[in-house]
Every structure is written in structure tokens, then in C-alpha cells.
């Protein structure tokens, strides 16, 4: 600090005494109001730090005990409460009743779309189009376990071959070649016979031989003409929809080593109302019966 305060002759202001290359710095103090706002901010920050959680990594809560999660809790609860009357109705009704009631149907289709995207789309695709490798399309008219409201509801609730639910759909298909039940030529004959169902057989003699093998080993589940059996989840073999591929190589692999898709049982994992909504939604995708 200079001992004597120097005044600038042009502006009449005091200088700070600092000098660079002959230029002197004027002393321009902060406005008082600015300073008071600054002090008020410091005071505010201290009070804030005491009341609200402010110290990172320590888990220390402020005096008020406020937490972000605690603050959003009532909002989520209010949301849940606002949905509850409709969900209670959806829980009490059967999917068929829901589909018949315009208000419930509209709610179920909108909510079902979201629930489907959250839980089902991973395997069955965003529009229920299915995916290669055994994830069936839900938009077509071919159903392994039935396309009625009851059947769809049962499949969603209990799942398929998940080993967790006693009522799960599907039984295991024998691995005819791997377990030595059929010989390789027999499997080939059966495959030719299956191709013949849709008029694609290349070897009439083999298909002829395969008919006998099919009647003996396959018809009990898949039906004499390959019409399938929904009770067991034995797919229809005389249509154009092939879950694991309809070319001969895929069919040989399916007969020889068997196929068995799995699906979780959603009862207990999802609210019954959500399962009902999903049922109505899947039914409306295009294949509902």
C-alpha cells in the first residue's frame, strides 16, 4: 500500500498505486450493493449446506433430511394411485371382457404396448414380428399354443418350458437322431415327407418311406397330416410358417436334434392387470382368434 493516496488528475479518482509501464490503475471499488449480495450468497450457501445434503461421498444428510428419492416418492405414489382404479378393473376382468369394453380396451392397448416394449420386445420384436432362431411372430395367424384370449393369457402367465412353473407350456420333443431313435436315412425320409406337406418334396420315394416313419414317430404329437397339436405345443407342419426355418437342412436339424424354445412365466413377475393388458394387446396384433 502506498503511504500517500494519489489522485488521478483527469478523473479525480484515487489510484491503487499499481503501475505498469507508466499506466496507473484507478481504484474503482465494488458497489456496496454488490458486496452485500456477495455476503448474502455466502450466508445462503452456509445455511443451504446445513439444511440440505451437501457433502459428497459421505452420505451425510442435511438437517431437513431431504433426499431426491424421498422427494419423488409421493409423486410416484400419486401416479400409482391415479392408475389404481383402472388397474383394479383390469385385474378383475377377463381379457375377453376387457376387449369388449371400449374404455378398458383403449387403456389396455395403450398400456399393453408399453408393457410389451418393456418385457416382450426383446425376443418377439417391437411389433411382435418375432425373430429368427425360435422367437415366434405374434402378428401372424399361426399359434403354437392357441390364439384365443384364454390361450394367450395362459402362455404369458405360465411361460414355456421354463422349469419354474408347473403349468408351463410345451413338452420336450425327442432328439430322434441324437438319441438313436431313428437312423440318418430315416430322418432324411421324414424330412422329405414334411416338405411334401407343402408340395416341395424332391424325392418321391424317400417321401413315401418317410410317411411310414412319420406315422409311427411323429403323428402322435404333430397329427397325421402335420396339422399340429396346440395342447402339446406341437407346431403345425403343413403350413408356410416355420419357426426354425423351412428349408431341408433346417428340418433335418429339427428332427434330428429337436427344438425347444423357452419363455419366462410372467405370473408373479407382472401385475395380473398388466398380464391382462398384454393379452389384449397381443391378441390385437393381428392374429387373435
Amino acid at each position: 500500500m502506498p503511504t500517500k493516496v494519489e489522485k488521478d488528475s483527469i478523473t479525480g479518482r484515487e489510484t491503487t498505486g499499481h503501475q505498469w509501464d507508466g499506466l496507473k490503475e484507478l481504484n474503482t471499488p465494488l458497489p456496496k450493493w454488490w458486496l452485500y449480495v456477495f455476503y448474502a450468497c455466502i450466508a445462503f450457501a452456509i445455511v443451504w449446506a446445513i439444511i440440505y445434503p451437501s457433502i459428497p461421498m459421505t452420505g451425510a444428510r442435511g438437517l431437513s433430511g431431504w433426499t431426491a428419492r424421498g422427494a419423488i416418492g409421493p409423486e410416484l405414489e400419486a401416479e400409482r394411485q391415479s392408475r389404481e382404479p383402472m388397474l383394479a378393473k383390469l385385474r378383475a376382468a377377463t381379457p375377453a371382457q376387457i376387449a369388449a369394453d371400449p374404455a378398458m380396451r383403449a387403456y389396455a392397448l395403450a398400456g399393453g404396448r408399453i408393457a410389451f416394449a418393456n418385457n416382450c420386445a426383446g425376443c418377439h420384436g417391437s411389433g411382435g414380428q418375432g425373430a429368427a432362431g425360435g422367437f415366434p411372430s405374434l402378428a401372424d395367424d399361426d399359434w403354437l399354443y392357441g390364439g384365443s384370449f384364454e390361450a394367450i393369457h395362459g402362455t404369458i402367465a405360465h411361460g414355456v418350458r421354463n422349469g419354474a412353473d408347473a403349468d408351463a407350456r410345451g413338452i420336450a420333443m425327442p432328439r430322434f437322431l441324437a438319441d438313436g431313435l431313428l437312423t440318418a436315412p430315416q430322418v432324411n425320409d421324414v424330412a422329405e415327407h414334411l416338405l411334401g406337406f407343402t408340395g416341395r418334396a424332391t424325392d418321391a420315394a424317400a417321401a413315401e418311406r418317410g410317411a411310414a416313419v412319420f406315422a409311427e414317430n411323429c403323428a402322435s404329437c404333430h397329427g397325421e397330416k402335420g396339422e399340429g397339436n396346440r395342447e402339446m405345443g406341437a407346431p403345425r407342419l403343413n403350413d408356410q410358417v416355420w419357426l426354425y426355418g423351412g428349408d431341408k437342412a433346417s428340418i433335418l436339424r429339427s428332427v434330428g436334434y429337436a427344438r425347444a424354445g423357452v419363455m419366462p412365466d410372467w405370473a408373479g413377475k407382472l401385475d395380473p392387470a398388466i398380464i391382462n393388458m398384454l393379452t389384449v394387446y397381443v391378441h390385437a396384433l393381428g392374429g387373435g382368434e
Partner: peptide, 18 residues
Amino acid sequence: RDRAPNFVRLSDGGVRNG
């Protein structure tokens, strides 16, 4: 028009759009 799936192959070989 539905984009997923673009079209659905039906069991009788028909094609359906939603």
C-alpha cells in the same frame, strides 16, 4: 402402416399388412 413387421407371412402363404 406398421413398420415392425413390414408385412406378416400367414400360414397359408398369404401376406398381410397392418
